[in-house]
Design a protein around this nucleic acid. Sequence first.
RNA 1: GCGCCCGUGGCUCAAUCGGAUAGAGCAACGGCCUUCUAAGCCGUAGGCUGCAGGUUCGAAUCCUGCCGGGCGCACCA
Length: 605
Amino acid sequence: MGPTIRFNRRPEGKESLIFEFHDPGEHMKDLLKQWVDGMVNQVRAQGLLPHDPLPAYRIDRPKERHHGDFSTNAAMVLARIARMKPRDLAERMLATLPRDQKDIERWEVAGPGFINFFVTTSRLQQHVHEIIDAGTRYGQSSLGQGVKVMVEFVSANPTGPMHVGHGRGAVTGDVLCRLLTATGHEVHREYYINDAGRQIDVLARSVQHRCRERMEGVTLSTPDEFYPGEYVIDILEAMPPSLRQSLEGSLANPPPLDTNDTTMTALTRFAVNWVLEDIRNDLDRLDIHFDQWFSERELHEQGGIDHALKILRAKDLIHDGSLEKPKGGGERPQDQWETRRQPLFRATAFGDDVDRPLQKPDGTYTYFAADIAYHLNKYERGFDRLVNIWGADHGGYVKRVEAALEGLTGKKDILKVLLVQMVNLTRNGQPVRMSKRAGNFVTLRDVVEQVGSDAVRFWFLTRASASQLDFDLDLAVAHSNDNPVYYVQYAHARICSIERQLEEKGLERGLLDAHVLELEAEMDLIRFLNVYPETVESAAVHLEPHRIAFYLQDLAAMFHTYYNSTRILDDEPRIRGGRLALCHAVRQVLTNGLKLMGVKAPERM
RNA sequence: GCGCCCGUGGCUCAAUCGGAUAGAGCAACGGCCUUCUAAGCCGUAGGCUGCAGGUUCGAAUCCUGCCGGGCGCACCA
């Protein structure tokens, strides 16, 4: 069910009256659904169908317009049970339908047994006003019914600047949040900070290494285990004098400090916060913001892991065992493998391939153990549904985390992990290194500065997240006019321009009554505007933000075609007013869609 | 060897939880600015949806097996 919103209706230019309605798109579909259900019940009453539960049938919008505005496959789905030919059953169903229908012009049986429905012109015209009156709310729905969803995304390790791959996950997550919010979910955006692992110590020691360099006034070779990036020096230079002094002091007095040293602790905190600030800055430039930044370190300190493992133990889901050496020909040499007994989570009880270790040889917890605790924590905070957006290189973790959550809660399908595939960054066709360890890599910030937030955001959403994405820097910059985002924005700017022209030429605005519209191009445009709310819902339900990008490109294309074939500012005021109303509706949908993508809708270009 | 993802015109990708004649963009070719922005539009050409089976009224979509590419595979994250 769509939301109930109030709007003004202006049929035939008469006085406005207020009444309630559902989403325009859903309204018709709901109506059709009732009809089809009614027909099915009728033929069932005639004894053509058993009273058992029936297979699901659908109401769809056919691709081909001559197949109507809506169609149902009900007769085909039910034909076997009825032991009739699909077309015959369709005829019997239609025979039960009353003749006088206000919004449907006609219906027919077509093809292998589809029932097609054709909406009246006046109903289509009416949609234009419904869109205008709904305004920024057009496309929103209450589908989610206030379900509490946490979306965890980005969660890049605070050990260096974000790369382009992070950016794709960030944009995907952000738009997904916007979609879920628009469809009536209560969304919580969270960033999980991996500030507890060994890589944090490496960061601190990398800073330390640079500090030693400065003190000795030489350039030392940078060992492999340190982060080589320039930003490490930035961290050093940003350090408050007191910390710098104690760092230098400790370096002057061997033996070198260990990780429990207070100076080292302070250094680590400072470095992590510096990098997080850097990351936050990048995200700001993309207009991406979080409700909460969740620290893994605090999770440890507050005993979250013990808490989670205690529950698992109580359910007998932890046992001591040893893993078998993985077989066969990975790249990694397997000769260092040593068999040892360790506490394992019984992931195999929930569909994973092997049981998973919870402790490292030194007795500390594995990353997986912390992840179990974190996801339990999410669940205990009262979220109905969890969505994680991970890079594809973490795909191997999905099963075990799902398994852990099911083991802890006894519920399946609380968590959905959306894997975002790799971004292949190239420059002039040549691959560009993106590893933090490579030192000289292109950061997300570089790309946003060169290409711009709008283009970057849009480009990331021009592919399903399961598909790998090619991102060529030269192409994005040099041929930026080919970027689809400008195509869509241009449609919006054009409409704004028309409205400006209206003023400049001193033309009357007219009645803005869409009921004078009659061109096929206009009806097609209206039909497509009606698909928007369904597109938003399907993008949200399927967790596929890219659908909005494709929809907007199609809508822009339809508008450009219309614009080129038809003069909006017609000499006849009534026609002009009708077309302006339609443009208004198109502009509204472009605005709403771009807003969902976090992309600006410029008034002029 | 195992798990996950992906194979769709020359290239990059869509395709409404199985629907009717598989669609766009780029590249190629030919047209359209004395009227609202040519960052645009119109037209032409291009396909055995990797291969082979199966499921059913109906398959790019689901199942099985191959082929090819990507990611991952105790202890790091």
